[in-house]
C-alpha cells in the first residue's frame, strides 16, 4: 500500500520537483521561468516523437533507458519515503539500493558507449569515475548509520531514527548527512559536479551520455533522472529528518499525511538545492575527486565518531 503510494508519488511528482527547482532558479536569476509543469510538457512532447535508431546502435542502446527507469522504480518502491514498511523488505537494504542505482548508471553508460561517438565514450568514462569515487563515501555513510542500529535495512534505520530523534543530531549522523548530501549531488548530476543544463563537451557528464537519445527513449531517461533526484532527496530526508513518516501498519490517513509531509520536505530540500546552485560554479572535472575525497573523509569521520563518541 505504502509502496504503491510511494511509486505513484515519485513517478508523478518528480518532474514537478524538477520544474519547481528550475522555477526557483529562474526566479533567483531574475527570469520568469517556464512554470512548474514544464518538464511534464517536455515529456509529453518527447513521447509523441518518432523513436530513432542511430547508426550502429543495438539492443544495449535500447535497453538502457528501460533498465535505468526500472532500477529507479524499484528503489522508489523500497526506500522509506512515506512508510517504513515495505512489502519488498528483503530489497530495502541500503547496499542493495545503492547498487541498484549504480546499475542504472551502468546501463546508461553502456548505452552511451554503444553509440560509438566520442561524446558517449566521454560521458560514460566520466560517469563511471564519479560512480567509483562516490561508492566508498556511500558505503561508509551506510556504515556510520547502521552501526547504532545493527542492520543495514532502511526501514529499521529510519524507524529507529523516529524513535530516537535526538540521535539525528549526533556528530556521526551530521557528518554522515553532509557526506551523503555531497554524494547525492554527485549521483544526480547537479552543480558543482555536473551541470544538468550544459551541452559543452568539456564539462558535461550526464548530457554527453544521452546525446544520441531522442523521442520516447529520451523521455524515459529524463523521467528516470528526475525520479532518481527525488528518490535520493527523499531518502536523505527520511534518514536525517524522518519526522512524520508512517511507521508500522499505518492506516490510509496516516499514509496520506506522511505523503504530504514528505512532499513538503523534498520540495524544501529541492528548493534549497536549486538556490544553492545559483550561487555556485561548476567544478573542473579534475577537481571533482577532491570534493569526493572530502566527502569520503567526512564519512570516515562519521564512522569513527559513531564508535569513539558513542
Amino acid at each position: 500500500m505504502g509502496a504503491v503510494l510511494q511509486v505513484v508519488l515519485v513517478a508523478v511528482g518528480s518532474p514537478l520537483l524538477v520544474g519547481m527547482m528550475r522555477q526557483v532558479r529562474a526566479r533567483l536569476e531574475g527570469r520568469a521561468g517556464a512554470g512548474i509543469g514544464q518538464p511534464w510538457r517536455d515529456l509529453r512532447k518527447l513521447v509523441r516523437k518518432e523513436p530513432i535508431a542511430p547508426d550502429g546502435t543495438g539492443w544495449v542502446f535500447r535497453a538502457a533507458p528501460l533498465l535505468l527507469a526500472g532500477t529507479v522504480l524499484v528503489v522508489a518502491a523500497v526506500v522509506p519515503l512515506v512508510s517504513t514498511t515495505s512489502p519488498l523488505d528483503e530489497v530495502a537494504d541500503l547496499f542493495a539500493v545503492v547498487a541498484l542505482l549504480a546499475l542504472g548508471s551502468v546501463a546508461l553508460a553502456l548505452g552511451a558507449l554503444d553509440t560509438s561517438t566520442a561524446f558517449g565514450g566521454m560521458g560514460a568514462s566520466r560517469e563511471m569515475i564519479v560512480l567509483a569515487l562516490v561508492e566508498p563515501t556511500i558505503l561508509l555513510s551506510v556504515f556510520a548509520l547502521s552501526v547504532r542500529v545493527g542492520t543495514t535495512n532502511l526501514g529499521t534505520i529510519v524507524t529507529s531514527a523516529v524513535a530516537d530523534p535526538l540521535a539525528v543530531i549526533s556528530p556521526a549522523s551530521l557528518l554522515a548527512a553532509a557526506a551523503l548530501a555531497i554524494v547525492t549531488i554527485a549521483e544526480t548530476g547537479r552543480i558543482p559536479v555536473d551541470n544538468p543544463s550544459t551541452h559543452l563537451e568539456l564539462t558535461m557528464i550526464h548530457e554527453a551520455m544521452v546525446l544520441e537519445y531522442a523521442g520516447p527513449d529520451l523521455a524515459l531517461i529524463e523521467w528516470a533522472s528526475a525520479m532518481r533526484l527525488s528518490v535520493l532527496l527523499g531518502l536523505l530526508t527520511s534518514l536525517f529528518a524522518p519526522w512524520g513518516i508512517a511507521t508500522g501498519n499505518a492506516g490510509l490517513l496516516a499514509l496520506l499525511l506522511a505523503a504530504v509531509v514528505v512532499i513538503a520536505k523534498v520540495a524544501l530540500l529541492g528548493a534549497l538545492l536549486a538556490a544553492g546552485e545559483v550561487f555556485m560554479a561548476k567544478l573542473r572535472l579534475f577537481r571533482i575527486p577532491e570534493l569526493l575525497a572530502g566527502s569520503f573523509l567526512m564519512a570516515l569521520l562519521a564512522v569513527a565518531a559513531s564508535f569513539f563518541l558513542a
Binding site: 513521447v47 518518432e50 527507469a69
Partner: peptide, 24 residues
C-alpha cells in the same frame, strides 16, 4: 519494473517504428 516501464512506453508512445538516423 522493467517490464512495467516497457509496457508503459508501449502504451504512451504512439509511434512505434524506429527510424534509422545518422549519429550526431
Amino acid at each position: 519494473a522493467v517490464a512495467g516501464t516497457l509496457a508503459l512506453t508501449r502504451v504512451v508512445a504512439t509511434r512505434r517504428v524506429r527510424r534509422a538516423a545518422r549519429l550526431w
